[in-house]
């Protein structure tokens, strides 16, 4: 069977060297089951080699290719074109929001990575600690001690979509808070609660839950932030009565 071909227009945000942003259009023929990143790469390969964008693994592990596609934060390597436009439709591609643009679709994520590092998130965790307790009940007695990579791929989509992050550059953001929660679950380290418990940490979140909606990796930052609040409040109350360790 001959593969379906769609003609689509990519309207790509271009900005470099402090110049004002503008959109440049490229018309492509694509297979709608290809991914948005494939289309962006084709623009770079066959139309404009000056286009700047980030990508690496092409299978949602590296988190490098996050972009805003038709208004919604997407990991473009796993977003089929069919899901976000139609034949003769347009894909409006923009850089992630709430990060300084370095060039075109590339944003400066250094502050984001610093916050992730401050959250002490270890990229590997025992399986029962890496899973979301709400989705995967921990087996009573795991047969083997197994570890796996934690879910967060540090793509930054949650920060891009967050309304609180739009107005505060000091907010540590959903990913770092979720990382602190993940690490707290794994280690019970009290200093993580102290790190998160301030106005630009846990309490800056205003419950729009968009971070969880766009997360491509089932991290569920909103749940983790709220659960971390619960731990913080519980710990603060317990400390009033002299307890120093969190309840297991």
């Amino acid at each position: 069977m001959k593969p379906t071909t769609w003609t689509i227009t990519l309207s790509i945000s271009r900005q470099s060297g402090g110049a004002p942003r503008h959109f440049q259009e490229f018309t492509l023929e694509v297979n709608p089951d290809e991914y948005v990143l494939d289309a962006v790469e084709r623009v770079w390969a066959f139309h404009d080699r000056s286009l700047n964008y980030r990508h690496a693994c092409h299978h949602s592990t590296c988190g490098a290719c996050g972009m805003v596609v038709n208004g919604v934060e997407k990991l473009t390597c796993i977003t089929p074109i069919r899901e976000v436009t139609r034949d003769r439709g347009t894909l409006r591609i923009e850089p992630l929001r709430n990060f300084p643009v370095q060039s075109d679709l590339v944003v400066d994520m250094s502050a984001f990575y610093q916050n992730m590092e401050a959250s002490k998130l270890n990229s590997v965790s025992p399986v029962e600690k890496a899973d979301l307790p709400i989705d995967h009940p921990t087996p009573a007695a795991p047969a083997v001690d197994a570890e796996r990579l934690v879910d967060c791929i540090e793509c930054g989509l949650c920060v891009s979509v967050c309304p609180a992050a739009a107005t505060s550059d000091s907010y540590v953001g959903p990913a770092a808070l979720a990382g602190a929660h993940q690490q707290f679950q794994a280690t019970g380290e009290i200093s993580l609660l102290d790190w998160a418990d301030h106005q630009d940490g846990l309490w800056r979140c205003h419950s729009a839950y968009e971070c969880t909606a766009v997360c491509p990796s089932n991290v569920n930052p909103a749940w983790r932030i709220m659960n971390l609040r619960r731990h913080v409040v519980s710990q603060r109350i317990r400390s009033l009565f002299g307890a120093k360790e969190p309840r297991p």
Binding site: R21, G71, N98, P163, T167, E210
Partner: peptide, 19 residues
């Protein structure tokens, strides 16, 4: 740069598009 967080972007709190 225009893409950075800023208190002046509070209007985005009231933009429900794509959300």
């Amino acid at each position: 740069m225009m893409n950075q967080p800023s208190p002046r972007k509070f209007w985005r709190w009231f933009d429900p598009r794509y959300r």
